[in-house]
Design a protein around this nucleic acid. Sequence first.
DNA 1: TATGAATGAGCGTTCATTCAT
DNA 2: AATGAATGAACGCTCATTCAT
Lengths: 227, 227, 227, 227
Amino acid sequence: MSEKREEWLKDLLRLVDEGDQKKTEKQAKILEAAVEIFSEKGYSATSTSEIAQKAGVAEGTIFRHYKTKKDLLLAIAGPIAVKLVAPFLLNDFVKVIDSPYDRPKDFFRAIAKDRIAFARSNIKLIKILFNEVPFQPELLEQVKNLMTNIVVKRIENALQHFQQQGFIVEAPPWRIMRSASSMLIGMIVFHVFLRPDFPFDEDEEIERTLDLLFYGIAGRSEENAEE
Amino acid sequence: MSEKREEWLKDLLRLVDEGDQKKTEKQAKILEAAVEIFSEKGYSATSTSEIAQKAGVAEGTIFRHYKTKKDLLLAIAGPIAVKLVAPFLLNDFVKVIDSPYDRPKDFFRAIAKDRIAFARSNIKLIKILFNEVPFQPELLEQVKNLMTNIVVKRIENALQHFQQQGFIVEAPPWRIMRSASSMLIGMIVFHVFLRPDFPFDEDEEIERTLDLLFYGIAGRSEENAEE
Amino acid sequence: MSEKREEWLKDLLRLVDEGDQKKTEKQAKILEAAVEIFSEKGYSATSTSEIAQKAGVAEGTIFRHYKTKKDLLLAIAGPIAVKLVAPFLLNDFVKVIDSPYDRPKDFFRAIAKDRIAFARSNIKLIKILFNEVPFQPELLEQVKNLMTNIVVKRIENALQHFQQQGFIVEAPPWRIMRSASSMLIGMIVFHVFLRPDFPFDEDEEIERTLDLLFYGIAGRSEENAEE
Amino acid sequence: MSEKREEWLKDLLRLVDEGDQKKTEKQAKILEAAVEIFSEKGYSATSTSEIAQKAGVAEGTIFRHYKTKKDLLLAIAGPIAVKLVAPFLLNDFVKVIDSPYDRPKDFFRAIAKDRIAFARSNIKLIKILFNEVPFQPELLEQVKNLMTNIVVKRIENALQHFQQQGFIVEAPPWRIMRSASSMLIGMIVFHVFLRPDFPFDEDEEIERTLDLLFYGIAGRSEENAEE
DNA sequence: TATGAATGAGCGTTCATTCAT
DNA sequence: AATGAATGAACGCTCATTCAT
């Protein structure tokens, strides 16, 4: 089940790679400062002079590396969008169906742990991405592409695989996906973004949340009553 | 179980009431225009002259009614924050515990239907609220207050009530709340904001989503295997 | 021989009229300052802040009245282009053919005196016009239109009229026009723009220059030799 | 009647010679690009980065050869000013008085043909020169010097010589010079700069224009009437 | 109450020029 | 000799806000 990589995806990946490598010292400082302030005040409310000051460079230097302020934003938000869905881009992601995750819980657990870790080390970048996606058509387009063509497709495949084996309830895959995603994303949003100080044992929390996802919140009375 | 209303809450409610009533025609047009543009381009990227133009008033008129641009934003985003949690503010919300919702499903179903309807008629306002909450300390504070002191408290009460009756699984209420909220919010976000054109039967969708919430996504094999 | 006025001409004339009338005090000061500095340093080398300073207004005020710096230039250079050819725009200019100027010399003398006076009272504006025409396509177009459709046409008519009466040598009208224009323009350029301090009696100078134009610079020997 | 060469003239000539010779390949490309863009958009509206790009060199390279942007302009406009009056600089220009041009028409014809040819091969440079002379004091000074001390002086000499022989009408030489120059310059401006596509036979045109210059535009009726 | 001209600080961007390589 | 990254002043222009009418 080899997936043909489309052009736009290749371009994206190349962009990400390039961005990760060739960076002058000044460029790195500019990015660092921009991330900091963009995430604090939002893109539109951030001035390039503020970025320059925080980065310790002249304002003109910013525009030598990024033709416009928006270019600077996209240089930050574009790659993070790709990295956000990186696990699903892996060619061998599909192997999930053949073997590595015997059970759907293993599958969700793996994704959850990986993405929580990722979110934790990229809090500011993810904030920027989500704050700006509604207002930057290029970003929106890119995110839509990634989601529709990569993530949704692959998860759907996995779910159908699990359904065939009877591991997952019979229901439209998109609803299961939506519900499962919501629960995991909700967990991340709460523990990483809203209440990073709320004390909890991550592994334990993932386990208990998966329990709720898999077996529901109904108590014994409810179960007997309805089923 | 009467709840003492704090000062800040009284202030908020008065604000909302006032906002809903005394509005000159011009003021209404200004708000309408501001909502439109704020939701499209974001608060910071919107200029007061643009609002004035769209509202068909002079620029000075805006500042006669709202001392600053931020005041205008807060006049929009503040009330919507309150209305967003309005059901939980009702004095008789607590009655849920005494009688009206025999079962938790009825409880969640009622909230879901009501809030979906609300979201649908306030898409732009809610967008504005969520876009700006991270950057406006006053908004953030207000939302935090509402959430922590009203919503969380009352839902927690309800959940504990249901747990006592055995209708809901024994688990920390905050985790159940987080999971349930995530699933319902995820449904709203998806069907109202992300894919409003995605065809679905609302009542049916709510029912099936509640099923997943209550009984989980595990299929028969999985159930047997683990439990 | 009534001439139908084209649309663009109407527009131009309206523009000039408007420009001459409704001007706030600030607007007048801005124009005055702009004319001064544009003529001294050229349009591109002039900064809007300099204009604002000289006009005694805030920089923003300039942009309330003229959307861009180029608009400001065109508000100055456009009308002067029209006024420069104003005499030829008069409907009764054509009467020249019926009676008022019995002889071509009277015709050229009238034009010369009028345009010298005009040049003298609009030195700076004319400088700006001619400095910027090569670089502003809109101006170039406008000047071309005025020249080709109005000035050239009408002078040609007059010349042909004079030729029919034997007052002017038989030669292609455009060559006569070019030569006559050159001589008069040369006179204006020299005495008004290049050496405004060079002492001369204007009426006398015009008369003597017309003599050269009409009877040539050849001395008696040359005349005998060739003719 | 040998003319003592002043210092400034020596300097100029040396500058021109140097300019024509020692030029690295890059330098030549820079000049070429600068001429192109200066003539298109004007000096002030041209950026050094644009020149560098068009010349295919680094921006720094320009400043290695020309200390400032203005130096670059002067390196272009200075020499062309000198070349523009070059014929009058020739030591043997004065021979005109002794013999080579028996008649003034030959004299003017020679100058006209030569300068038309020159203008044609230096259109852009001449445009630059005349566009910038009003704004660059150094250029203005240089052109004034050349004109007053060389061109005017020598033509005046020639004219007086022709007047003594009765070939040219008795009138202040400056007026004859102004009129003759205007006519020839008018011809060049029209046929070379304004309407280079206007079809005409150059030799014929020069001849006919000289006729107008020498014998005037008056027809037979006018001649009889006035003289 | 409503206006819109006026403000001047601040915006994103470009500029001519420098200098380490 | 040639580069191009870096500079910071200056650019044209927009901004939220004020105020006389």
